[in-house]
């Protein structure tokens, strides 16, 4: 049994199937993307018990009891500070990698809500954006961090 975006699911697929394909092909929740299958690009990033992880290399059978959040579950109404900041900075181009970028940034801010530029680089370097939106991603994370700091 695993919990995805607050809903419980039986794992009824081969044990070695990565979480990514369970989410996409078994459950039909398509916001989490396939990019490389080797944990090299970050497009498949989700939160597993609050930590940003690559779902393409995470066997679903190893996640019994885990709470998973995908982009669809990050907030009810796109109100997460990162989603708002992504909108403010008009970050996406094609948008395909952005769910992974946002979820990875969510993992970062959950641990450190005032990251330095260096810490943003270190945390986000595993997420590729082939369209080249990095400058905006950085700014959006800083904007979201500022908002989180105000909330505290």
């Amino acid at each position: 049994m695993i919990t995805i975006n607050g809903k419980d699911y039986e794992v009824d697929v081969p044990a070695d199937m990565p979480l990514l394909w369970f989410i996409r092909d078994r459950l039909g929740i398509k916001g989490t993307k396939y990019g490389c299958g080797m944990g090299l690009c970050g497009a498949c990033t989700v939160l597993i018990d609050g930590q940003a992880r690559r779902s393409c290399i995470m066997p679903v059978a190893a996640l019994n009891g885990a709470k998973i959040t995908t982009i669809e579950g990050l907030s009810e109404d796109a109100s997460h500070p990162l989603q708002k900041a992504w909108l403010e900075h008009n970050v996406p181009q094609c948008g395909y990698c952005q769910a992974g970028q946002i979820m990875n940034a969510a993992g970062l801010l959950a641990q450190n809500n005032q990251p330095s530029e260096q810490q943003i680089d270190d945390a986000m370097q595993g997420n590729i954006c082939r369209c080249g939106t990095y400058q905006r991603i950085k700014k959006a994370i800083q904007t979201a961090a500022d908002e989180l700091a105000k909330e505290v």
Partner: peptide, 29 residues
Amino acid sequence: SDLKRHDVDLVIRGQRVYGADASVPGMKY
């Protein structure tokens, strides 16, 4: 002007549908 992309809201919710996301009942992979 600096008009925002019309689809940015879909992207941040994970709702933009790409070719890889297309599905119909009964399909196989």
